[in-house]
């Protein structure tokens, strides 16, 4: 982004999808030291659309779970263009339980057009995998910080989004449905996606206003170094604050964070 001009909703959708935009893997590289990737759901397979593992955030051991779509064509195919399969969500949950066992805070990076839509994903219970994460994450006894870095596509994004603190990069988006999907249902015309993006209220400002996210990391006129440094400092301060809470208080506050939405 150059210039001072703020982007419109659909411009933000396009920016969030831009293949040049950094996804979860990049933020692991920039924020996490000594990262060790851990693979597999111990049930069926390993989903390359989710990179997960352990490392240090400024000396603090953390578990990191990140959606990644890849940067080269080969990598994109391998990572299924960043659309997680049930195995990805189950791997994420396995590592969250492990994080709980070893009292490590969890950081999730969200950026995907959505959970993979495929026959095999349905056969292996895409819905069940997401549901299980929503259910279990509400009770994980360590702090969870979720950061939307790209497109937060519906239930597939929320499956890493049940957290204590939700953060969005300024030009990321987070929506119940893609603007194209919304436009084709609403106006039988997916080319009206720009209008749909406006009415869906999916920008970081909208979500902050709705109190769905607690923090926006500014991107306009800022370097990657500045963005990463801001993000790192904010995550660190949130982890410190959440660690100071009793487990009981932490889980009560997490429940309340979602409980109040639409109450």
């Amino acid at each position: 982004m150059s210039g001072n001009e703020k982007l419109k909703a659909y411009d933000k959708v396009l920016a969030a999808r831009n293949t040049a935009r950094h996804m979860g893997g990049y933020y692991i590289e920039r924020l996490i030291d000594d990262f060790i990737e851990l693979h597999g759901d111990r049930r069926f397979g390993d989903d390359a659309a989710i990179i997960s593992g352990i490392g240090y955030l400024n000396g603090v051991p953390v578990t990191v779970i990140a959606m990644e779509r890849g940067t080269t064509v080969e990598e994109r195919i391998k990572r299924n263009f960043g659309c997680p399969s049930p195995e990805g969500y189950r791997k994420a949950l396995r590592l969250m339980k492990e994080a709980e066992k070893f009292s490590r805070p969890i950081i999730c990076f969200i950026g995907s057009s959505g959970a993979y839509c495929g026959i095999d994903a349905e056969e292996r219970g895409q819905g069940e995998a997401i549901a299980e994460n929503l259910f279990e994450m509400m009770g994980i006894k360590v702090p969870i910080i979720s950061v939307v870095v790209g497109e937060g596509g519906s239930g597939g994004a929320l499956a890493l989004g049940v957290c204590d603190t939700a953060v969005m990069l300024e030009n990321s988006v987070y929506s119940v449905i893609s603007p194209e999907g919304c436009a084709s249902i609403l106006w039988k015309d997916s080319s009206k996606a720009d209008e749909a993006a406006e009415v869906l209220k999916l920008t970081s400002e909208d979500l902050y206003k709705f109190e769905v996210v607690e923090k926006i990391i500014d991107e306009t006129d800022r370097t990657q170094d500045e963005i990463c440094s801001d993000l790192k400092n904010f995550i660190l301060s949130e982890i410190e604050a959440k660690k100071a809470m009793s487990v009981e208080d932490l889980l009560a506050a997490r429940y309340e964070k979602f409980r109040k939405i639409g109450a």
Binding site: S154, L158, G161, V162, S175, L200, K201, V212, I261, G262
Partner: peptide, 9 residues
């Protein structure tokens, strides 16, 4: 919008 999605959680 997003408020519906959050009902799932």
């Amino acid at each position: 919008g997003i408020l519906s999605l959050m009902q799932m959680a």
